[in-house]
């Protein structure tokens, strides 16, 4: 019953599905830590995926394409920052506007540049190189087809942990998220930190986008992101915005997606597994409050009964 080949295929698929999710949920997590409500991961990913393909097409250099992709999503992040940090507009509205706009914009430009609205691919496009493994066997099967950008995602989450929890920059960032008033009273330039955080989150989503367009296959499809940005939001929620929690959540959701593909013709249909991230978030929010309420009630009761 237990087929090792089957299993390693699932693991490999999970890792591949997980990487873009992980990048985006890390982006969401660090923004959350800095009190910036960023829901534009979809839009940033989309921008990156598109511009990397465009540059790839015109220069045939995968490295320039990667840079272009990241630059594109950072640009989007800066626009987001302008509206929600500087102008203090509603982060929800602006974020969603950016997401829907990016779909339209990329489709529009896709038509202008390449003359098609659906899928674009071209033999001259260069994909991301897959990492050649020095070993073989089961382990190699499980890590098959991963690019260094995929590995980068996991490195990024480790890096995020170190920066946030071991370096002074991370402390100050987290402090802003805990209490912006207190941080301000100590003279911290909150807006600068928030912009910087948005820029980094833009870069992370940029790497995710690059994975989508040049990772396992090299192309651009309309709506290539297909909701991953929102799943990343869910992963961020589930993982409590902690780099390691987010890693676990992303792996979990990546696994769901992988399994969803595999179990296509069995009882668990694709739509059901696709719903898992969202249902899980709702449950997590519920459970979180149930615990917090009990703690609060006890505290007040204690005061009234003491002395």
């Amino acid at each position: 019953m237990f087929n090792i080949g089957y299993f390693s295929a699932i693991v490999s698929s999970t890792l591949r599905m997980c990487a873009p999710l992980l990048y985006c949920s890390l982006a969401a997590a660090i923004c959350q830590k800095a009190q910036v409500f960023n829901i534009a991961m979809e839009g940033m990913m989309m921008a990156s995926a598109f511009f990397s393909i465009v540059v790839n097409y015109f220069t045939n250099s995968v490295w320039l394409a990667l840079l272009a992709g990241v630059a594109g999503s950072v640009a989007v992040a800066m626009i987001l920052g302008l509206f929600i940090v500087k102008l203090k507009a509603s982060p929800v509205i602006v974020g969603m506007a950016i997401n829907t706009m990016m779909v339209g914009l990329t489709t529009y430009l896709m038509y202008i540049f390449f003359g098609t609205k659906g899928v674009f691919t071209h033999p001259s496009l260069v994909g991301l190189p897959k990492v050649a493994l020095p070993f073989g066997g089961v382990a190699a099967d499980m890590l098959a087809g991963l690019t260094f950008v995929d590995y980068g995602a996991f490195a990024a989450s480790a890096l995020a942990f170190v920066v946030l929890y071991r370096m002074t920059v991370g402390y100050r960032l987290r402090a802003i998220g805990i209490s912006p008033e207190a941080a301000r009273s100590m003279g911290t330039p909150i807006e600068s930190y928030q912009f910087a955080t948005l820029a980094v989150s833009g870069a992370l989503c940029g790497l995710a986008g690059v994975l989508l367009s040049m990772g396992s296959v090299t192309l651009f499809i309309q709506n290539i992101t297909s909701g991953r940005g929102y799943i990343a939001m869910a992963a961020n929620n589930l993982g409590k915005s902690h780099p390691l929690g987010v890693l676990a959540a992303s792996l979990f959701f990546g696994c769901c997606q992988a399994l969803g593909n595999f179990l296509q013709n069995t009882s668990l249909k694709g739509q059901i597994t696709a719903s898992i991230p969202y249902a899980a978030t709702v449950l997590a929010l519920i459970l979180f409050t149930v615990r917090r309420r009990a703690a609060r009630k006890n505290k007040i009761r204690k005061v009234l009964n003491d002395r």
Binding site: Y171, A175, I178, S179, A182
Partner: peptide, 8 residues
């Protein structure tokens, strides 16, 4: 009103 970071 204290300007402190609670969880820290």
């Amino acid at each position: 009103h204290f300007m402190l970071f609670g969880p820290m």
